[in-house]
């Protein structure tokens, strides 16, 4: 293994990890507020097409990312209205959002098929971003750094701020939070919107960075991996970062093993790895007897105030 190869492999891992890290962070905050949104895949696709479309029209990838965040958040609001206002079942509504987002993004995308935008690549000078060694730090799209910065910011918000405390309170015991005067529904709207925006940016990473084009269903199931990631991480931000890179390394290892001609594991097994690992993590957590440690107590339950 040469240094070149290690650096190139690391960069592949970063590319595979960033979208699931973004979507996972958003979903983590949503779930911390007590809402289970299974529509990540649909929101990612909505973000992918929104970001792409805005970039096509404005030639500005920064606006494109904003558009992606908006597209993801807007589609999540549909889910929020159904779940928070009409108290529909969160699991079923989330699945519906995935199907809806897949279909609507395909419909919007019809007029964008076959077009390309310049890739939203590094903003650092070429001397750094193309340097054989330093590219491992400077050679990425701004979205990668955004994702990494959002990890400590999210952790700080959840555990060091008053707003974060309220959000967690709403997720742990919605009736208590309600009885001392916090708006459970308002907090959850905000958390769902944040989850949607982050999923949207994660989706834009596909349509604007990796392959700057639009193709139907181009996220190809990464939303589900992001959902598994949140559980795998036990609803902790630090572990989410580690887990995202662990999943990313697994995905890259599969490709390297195949390209190098190793066949010690059937490839279906590789594809199932993130989910198997999640099952394993859940088993370990529950075997320790700490009751899923960090799973929000109100996760997936509708809020029906008695007063």
């Amino acid at each position: 293994m040469t240094l070149d190869l290690i650096i190139a492999a690391l960069m592949t891992v970063v590319g595979l990890t960033t979208p699931i890290l973004l979507a996972g962070l958003g979903e983590l905050v949503t779930e911390k507020s007590g809402v289970l949104n299974l529509g990540v895949e649909g929101m990612m696709l909505m973000g992918a097409i929104s970001g792409f479309a805005v970039t096509v029209f404005t030639f500005n990838p920064w606006l494109g990312v904003l558009g992606a965040a908006f597209g993801g958040a807007a589609s999540s609001m549909l889910f929020a209205v159904l779940v928070l206002q009409l108290n529909s079942n969160q699991v079923a509504t989330g699945l519906a959002l995935t199907i809806f987002g897949t279909g609507l993004s395909s419909l919007i995308g019809l007029s964008f098929v076959g077009r390309i935008v310049p890739p939203f690549s590094s903003i650092f000078p070429a001397a750094l971003s193309r340097h054989p060694v330093w590219q491992v730090i400077f050679g990425y799209s701004p979205i990668v750094y955004f994702a990494l910065i959002m990890v400590p910011i999210t952790a700080w918000f959840l555990h060091r701020t008053r707003a974060g405390l309220i959000l967690r309170a709403v997720g742990e015991n919605d009736h208590s939070a309600h009885s001392i005067g916090y708006s459970v529904v308002g907090v959850r709207y905000a958390a769902i919107a944040f989850g949607g925006a982050m999923a949207g940016i994660g989706g834009a990473y596909f349509s604007m960075v990796i392959t700057p084009m639009w193709a139907e269903k181009m996220t190809a199931g990464r939303g589900w991996i992001a959902l598994a990631l949140v559980v795998f991480a036990g609803w902790r931000t630090g572990r989410l970062l580690a887990g995202a890179y662990f999943f990313g390394i697994l995905m890259a290892l599969e490709l390297y093993a195949k390209a190098a001609g190793f066949s010690f594991m059937p490839s279906q097994f590789w594809a199932a790895m993130p989910y198997l690992m999640t099952v394993a993590a859940l088993t370990i957590i529950s075997a320790r007897g700490t009751q899923g440690a960090n799973a929000p107590a109100c996760l997936g339950k509708p809020f029906l105030p008695s007063t």
Partner: peptide
């Protein structure tokens, strides 16, 4: 597409 892209990366790296 994401996996196709990553696999292409890998082949180039090798």
């Amino acid at each position: 597409p994401p996996k196709e892209a990553a696999a292409t990366d890998t082949l180039i790296n090798l």
